[in-house]
């Protein structure tokens, strides 16, 4: 059984389409990284899973249940670190955890949880005095109460320093080893790369890639990133490059053209640009990183992306 199943989910707020026909399945026990730039629709998708908002179209199953009709049952088995939350200013960290334990009817030790999320010693302080990172740790502690089958973490690293982000990833690892499914959103690939089995990349409400981390690595392993210094390249000129065999993506920031391609396609790329009347001042090649691929998917025009995504989603 899939832990999360989204089928043609669309969410519109007035004229704005936040999520657009999203199909996504996350298997039980999978650690899934949900990537995309801010505003891509990640939090809206998560809010649909939690029944904070209702989809305009499409169907949703979480742990085999309908999150709208069986909302409480879903949340009994789910630990959530929501986005854009705040803590109860007048309650202590300890009291927050007690409330989560009471709410989930769980048998957990608040002090052990505080220790686990790195808040040992701060439990008796009022949460109103916590920093953003401490509030984030506290909410993670509340999410862990009762050993949930599914963890939904929305941008869990925000507000954490690098050491804190690393601790958070270790906790995700431990939970995954316990057998929990983890659904983990981030706009930073680096947060996800180290812990996730697989990722999906969301862009403007649509899934543009769905693959295992290994699959992505293989995809970029053969590729190269070509950086060409050339002023004022037009979109038409770039289209000529995109039409070439072996070219995945081509973008420009006005002074530098960045092309994702097979190493063999390099000469053709430069030649095509020059034929189109572009003056190439300089160029450099390097091996592509996952980050390049992620940026190509989320920032560039990535013409190949949607085709690739379609086949990968179906796979």
């Amino acid at each position: 059984m899939a832990a999360i199943e989204l089928d043609g989910v669309t969410k519109r707020f007035g004229d704005v389409t936040a999520v657009d026909g999203l199909d996504l399945t996350v298997a039980e026990g999978e650690v899934f990284g949900f990537l995309g730039p801010n505003g891509a629709g990640k939090s809206t998708t998560i809010n649909v899973l939690l029944d904070f908002v209702r989809p305009t179209e499409g169907s949703v199953r979480v742990l085999g249940m309908d999150p709208q009709r069986e909302s409480v049952a879903v949340r009994e088995r789910t630990g959530v670190l929501p986005e854009g939350f705040s803590v109860y200013d007048r309650l202590t960290g300890h009291e927050h955890l007690e409330f989560a334990i009471e709410s989930k009817d769980a048998d957990a030790d608040p002090d052990a949880l505080l220790e686990r999320v790195g808040l040992a010693g701060d439990g008796d302080r009022k949460a109103g005095g916590y920093s953003k990172g401490m509030a984030q740790r506290l909410a993670l502690g509340m999410a862990l109460v009762g050993d949930p089958d599914l963890l939904i973490l929305d941008e869990p690293s925000s507000g954490l320093d690098p050491a804190g982000a690393k601790e958070m990833r270790e906790i995700v690892r431990e939970e995954a080893d316990r057998g929990a499914t983890v659904f983990f959103s981030s706009h930073v690939l680096g947060q996800v790369e180290a812990v996730c089995d697989s990722v999906g990349i969301l862009r403007e409400g649509k899934l543009v890639a769905r693959d295992s981390i290994r699959g992505l690595r293989e995809a970029v392993g053969t590729g190269a990133t070509l950086e060409i210094t050339a002023e004022g390249v037009t979109d038409d000129q770039l289209d000529a490059v995109r039409d070439l065999d072996g070219v995945d993506a081509a973008t420009t920031d006005g002074t530098v053209v960045t092309v994702q391609c097979d190493p063999e396609a390099k000469t053709a790329v430069i030649g095509t640009l020059e034929d189109a009347g572009v003056v190439v001042d300089d160029f450099a090649t390097r091996e592509s990183s996952l980050e390049d691929l992620f940026l190509a998917y989320t920032e560039g025009d990535a013409p190949g992306a949607s085709e690739a995504a379609d086949s990968e989603v179906e796979a």
């Binding site: 929501p82 854009g84 989930k104 509340m142």
Partner: peptide
């Protein structure tokens, strides 16, 4: 408005 409701409704309360 403060966002504490998200913490509250992340827990299994109807």
């Amino acid at each position: 408005e403060s966002g504490t409701i998200k913490l509250l409704l992340s827990l299994p309360h109807s």
